[in-house]
């Protein structure tokens, strides 16, 4: 069987952005979506890690349009991130960007996404034979922290657009006790604002919550019953949250997309 040795060398199918062809600590491809590649790289110093989000150009798009879309998306994501950060919403800070070249460097967030931690925790509990609803303190705490982080973001006029447990990170808190505390400990950091926008519409906010609720239902069904904890903390996190929760009931009835009939 033929083995393509070049494959193991190139970490990504698309050519590296020019920025990563310049001397630095080698970048590592950590995620690839439809629109962007995410690398772990370094900012200014070899000792300062960063996340580099690169939006390669799409060959099927008209070059002018392609450049415009890329620029627009990089800038709007960076704007939303800096806005959140200024207002104290836990998100990665923006280090540098080159919208023409299609990249943005942001703060590297340590830790793991909630989806992974939560599934590990749930499966460990299942193995230990702990019935659902028992010793849920840690889980309740996590759900509440998620609710208040999301509420805080909504409170400053930002909607995420793709709230899933893969876009919530748990960053270890250094002060926390021996051996890093529990699996569900840590500070919630919201990531991936690629689909985010600035909006204070209850409809948009409710859709964020609905998407998150569905994400819990589909990937952590054992934790779904505790989603009320998310909503409870959300309700207390900003003025007007209760109206969003009303709206959420409406969204649940009809789904994420608004009916365009009539």
């Amino acid at each position: 069987m033929e083995v393509d040795t070049s494959l193991s060398q190139s970490s990504s199918p698309v050519p590296l952005p020019l920025i990563l062809q310049r001397p630095s600590v080698p970048a590592i491809l950590i995620a690839q979506g439809a629109e962007a590649l995410l690398f772990r790289s370094t900012y200014l110093l070899p000792s300062l890690p960063c996340a580099l989000k690169y939006r390669p150009s799409k060959p099927y798009r008209h070059p002018t349009l392609d450049l415009r879309l890329t620029k627009h998306r990089i800038l709007s994501e960076a704007r939303v991130l800096t806005k959140c950060r200024r207002e104290g919403v836990p998100v990665p800070g923006v280090y540098a960007l080159d919208e023409g070249a299609g990249w943005m460097m942001i703060e590297w967030v340590d830790g793991e996404v909630v989806r992974i931690r939560l599934n590990e925790w749930l499966s460990r509990r299942a193995q230990e034979g702990v019935p659902q609803g028992v010793e849920d303190g840690k889980l309740v705490g996590l759900m509440r922290r998620i609710g208040s982080a999301v509420g805080r973001m909504h409170g400053v006029g930002v909607v995420h657009g793709d709230l899933t447990t893969s876009n919530l990170m748990l960053r270890p808190v250094p002060a926390e006790g021996v051996n890093g505390g529990g699996m569900l400990d840590g500070e919630i950091v919201l990531i991936d604002f690629g689909l985010a926008s600035q909006s204070t519409q209850d409809e948009d906010r409710a859709v964020d919550l609905y998407v998150l609720e569905r994400a819990f239902g589909s990937t952590h069904s054992k934790a779904e019953s505790l989603f009320t904890e998310v909503l409870g903390a959300y309700e207390k996190s900003f003025k007007g949250a209760n109206i969003v929760l009303k709206k959420l009931e409406e969204v649940r009835m009809r789904g994420r997309k608004r009916s365009m009939l009539g």
Binding site: A78, R79, R86, G93, V94, Y95
Partner: peptide, 11 residues
């Protein structure tokens, strides 16, 4: 916050 403001200059 300062790094963010600088990065967004000219956007």
């Amino acid at each position: 916050l300062i790094l963010g403001s600088m990065a967004l200059r000219g956007a």
